[in-house]
Simulated scan of single mutants.
Amino acid sequence: MVRACHPEPVVAVTALITALAAASGRSPGGCLLVACAVFTGQLSVGWSNDRVDARRDRAAGRQDKPLVSGAVGAGTVAAAAVGALALCVPLSVANGVSAGAAHLAGVAAAWGYNLGVKRTVLSWLPYAVGFGLLPAFVTLGLPGRPWPPGWSVAAGALLGVGAHVTNVLPDIDADLAAGVRGLPQRLGRRRSRALAPVPLFAACAVLVFGPPGPAGVAGWAALAVTGALAVVTAVPAGAGSSSRLPFLATLVTAATAVALLVLHGGSLVRRP
């Protein structure tokens, strides 16, 4: 069940958004609510993804997938996905109605991706919506329910688009064989690999220059790091075309972006 939920993004997204909540001024109890809501939402998305893709994964011979290897049953994964989603709803709303609505809209976008949007040219949109709404989920749970500044929403959306492109890179050939024709699949491996660093680097640039005040040493250092990661993402890894290195580089880029948000925690809760 752990492997079927896509544990790396589940843990990474939960940890990063919890850190963002702490930086924005949420109380320890508030941070715990944020963590629980994001964790259950991510679990529901990961499990639903494996359940929806089970037939395609089986046809592709994906023995690394628990549903294909027989390590877990389809009914168990489906029940877990629905159960996690059922928990996510009250946990999200416990952060405040507006904050809960923002988070649940992002979770709904992710479920929409799993249920068919990923097969269309708009495959990037659920990622942009889901990641773009995460700063709103955090700040709308604060006293006064402030909307986050535009630069934080734009940076989140850009990170989401970059994460989408890099995540599907290793599986483009199998996706095309299964009839999955999202935007990266339509572009092909070479053009998608070249495209992926663009929104990621743009997200970090927005986070460096969007908040008030000078970029500073930390900002310029972050741009240098994410620029290097952009090169890693764009250049084929030595492990071969199925390498997960681009996606791992995306997670590091996301961590760098959240580190920038932590440095500008006060700016996140100010109205633009």
Rank of each mutant, 00 (worst) to 15 (best):
A4D: 05
P7I: 06
V10P: 00
V13I: 12
L16V: 08
I17Y: 00
T18F: 00
T18Q: 01
L20Q: 05
L20I: 08
L20M: 03
A21C: 02
A21E: 03
A23W: 02
S24V: 08
P28C: 09
G30D: 11
G30M: 13
C31G: 06
L32I: 15
L33D: 11
A35K: 03
Q42K: 11
L43T: 05
S44F: 07
V45A: 09
N49H: 04
V52D: 12
D53C: 06
R55T: 14
R56I: 15
D57H: 09
R58T: 10
A60R: 04
A60S: 15
A60D: 14
G61T: 13
Q63A: 12
D64L: 09
L67F: 13
A71P: 03
V72T: 13
G73W: 14
T76R: 14
T76H: 06
V77M: 13
A79V: 02
A80V: 14
V89F: 15
P90M: 05
A94K: 00
N95L: 03
G96V: 07
V97H: 01
S98C: 02
S98V: 06
A99V: 06
A101N: 01
L104F: 05
A110V: 10
W111F: 04
W111H: 06
W111R: 02
W111G: 01
W111V: 07
N114P: 09
L115K: 12
L115R: 09
G116I: 07
G116R: 08
K118Q: 10
R119L: 06
T120I: 00
Y127V: 00
Y127D: 02
G132Y: 04
A136H: 00
A136F: 05
V138G: 01
G141L: 10
G141Q: 07
P143V: 10
G144T: 04
R145Y: 12
W147M: 04
P148C: 09
G150N: 03
W151A: 07
A154N: 05
A154T: 03
A157T: 02
A157P: 12
A157V: 09
L159R: 02
G160H: 07
H164W: 09
N167M: 03
N167Y: 00
L169A: 05
D171M: 14
D171H: 08
D171T: 09
D173C: 12
D175N: 07
G179W: 09
G182N: 07
L187R: 13
R189I: 15
S192G: 02
A196W: 01
A196C: 01
L200S: 11
F201N: 11
A202L: 08
A203W: 06
C204Q: 13
A205E: 11
A205Q: 06
F209G: 10
G210Y: 08
G210M: 03
P211D: 06
P214M: 04
A215I: 14
G216A: 01
V217R: 11
G219D: 03
A221S: 14
A221W: 01
A221Q: 11
A224V: 13
A228D: 01
A230F: 13
V232G: 02
T233A: 00
A234M: 11
P236C: 07
P236I: 08
A237K: 09
G238W: 12
A239H: 15
A239L: 02
G240W: 12
S243W: 11
P246V: 09
T250M: 15
T256V: 15
A257Q: 14
V258H: 03
V262Q: 01
H264M: 06
S267T: 13
L268M: 12
L268H: 12
V269E: 04
R271A: 15
R271V: 15
